[in-house]
Design a protein around this nucleic acid. Structure first.
Lengths: 242, 242
DNA sequence: TGACAATATATTGTCGACAACGTATAAACC
DNA sequence: GGTTTATACGTTGTCGACAATATATTGTCA
């Protein structure tokens, strides 16, 4: 049997490519919360049709990065204190679940990858190279979640992580926080080695709920400083938001 | 101040209308698992352009009802034993969470609605009117979840419910099962009244995990009877599915 | 001048047509 | 006859244009 399609590489659709770029830019803060992503503008920038842009925007909306207001377009999802609380609340339960499952699974090769990443993170912390630490941290957790063997669960958890990423970015700002993060990873790796799934579950949940409280107080303080008014004010739109 | 937009009703986009119809049809089994939803066909049926159809299909895919295979289209998500297990696993944790939160919230008016629905369900069980019971059951749980005050959580849980709906349809087939369901609702209402959030959490989780096992064995038995081969067999597509 | 109506502008919503891709069928070659 | 190459077909992917909608601007009248 001959494989006549030698590329074997699935050519990504234009919409998918746009999604990848925009998602990263939203996470990195290039687009501010409540920012309006105009279709025509993006079509010109990426040199694709508005159809592809619309498809990309819809995908991002379904992932929670954008919100669609009919006849007004897509806006970067503004995450207030309440939303952060809710997202972290869900994360706290799902992510700890994924971790516990991964430990029960004991998929071969995982522990080595985690240990390797953990060591690299220690180096990055010493430097200190925050950007590198940040990326390694993401990778560490994604590998952990994927090792749960539950695809949907891992995908959901990874997506939630990305959503809160823009707020967590500033989390690793102080070295004390990085130290706490390192300790956390060491504990998780230890739990993995010894197969202590339940302990890891409780530990991770606890940590995430702590992070949630930490971030909430931070956001509340910020929003007090600059009481930002919503960009849309008409009665109809307000109604749509409810 | 005059409201010059007297409709005040948000005119739904064509895509949204199509979504509503197709989602129900998928849940009701009009479209079989692995069934191919052709854009041109649907466009002709609904008398709208393919653009609107594509948007609708993408939405349904993001909700987990369809899977997109590039250059081959959208197919009704086939849920095997593994997927059922995973969905129920996630549901067991998230739904019990929503219920516990709703009980902690004690939003006024909720308990009356739940009690009213529960009594109607008892009637439907006596009849027995399975269709009515089924719809009341859905409403009961949606109200419960929404009362959690956590919008995302409620939305996620409700969506998962719908996804497993096509398998649960046959669940209320015997009267013994309906009786167990009734008992479960009575317990949940009791927990709500007495504010026993933690008890409700444990109870609901337990029940869902039981349902999961029950359904899995059923599905496994079915698939043994009719070993259905996948509708797509080429190497490329198989690769895309991984 | 102030309220209301009419117009202009910007943006999303919808459409039909063509291009690209993958598969099945038919033709050509040994 | 069996294998390879070429062709035709069906379906999704992409595009540019037009329609519908909401807001902002201008014009009109008291």
């Amino acid at each position: 049997m001959k494989i006549h399609n030698e590329t074997m590489v699935i050519r990504k659709s234009l919409a998918t490519q746009v999604v990848d770029i925009l998602e990263r830019e939203i996470v990195e803060g290039v687009y501010q919360p409540d920012g309006h992503l105009r279709e025509a503008e993006l079509a010109k920038r990426f040199k694709v049709s508005r159809a592809s842009i619309r498809e990309a925007l819809q995908t991002l909306a379904s992932r929670g990065f954008l919100i669609n207001i009919p006849h007004h377009g897509m806006f970067v999802a503004p995450i207030g204190a309440e939303e952060v609380e809710e997202i972290f609340f869900i994360r706290a339960h799902l992510e700890s679940l994924a971790i516990a499952e991964a430990i029960r699974q004991q998929e071969p090769g995982v522990i080595e990858k985690l240990e390797k990443l953990r060591l690299e993170m220690e180096e990055a912390a010493k430097d200190p190279d925050r950007e590198r630490y940040y990326n390694l941290n993401m990778e560490f957790h994604e590998i952990f979640h994927n090792a749960s063997g539950k695809k949907m669960l891992a995908e959901m958890v990874n997506n939630f992580s990305k959503q809160t990423q823009r707020y967590r970015r500033e989390y690793f700002s102080t070295e004390a926080q990085m130290a706490r993060s390192l300790e956390s990873h060491a504990k998780l790796v230890k739990f993995f080695k010894s197969g202590q799934a339940d302990e890891a579950y409780r530990y991770r949940k606890q940590r995430l709920l702590e992070n949630s409280r930490h971030l909430q107080s931070k956001i509340k303080k910020e929003s007090k400083d600059q009481s930002n008014s919503p960009p849309y004010t008409t009665r109809e739109i307000q109604g749509a938001l409810v």
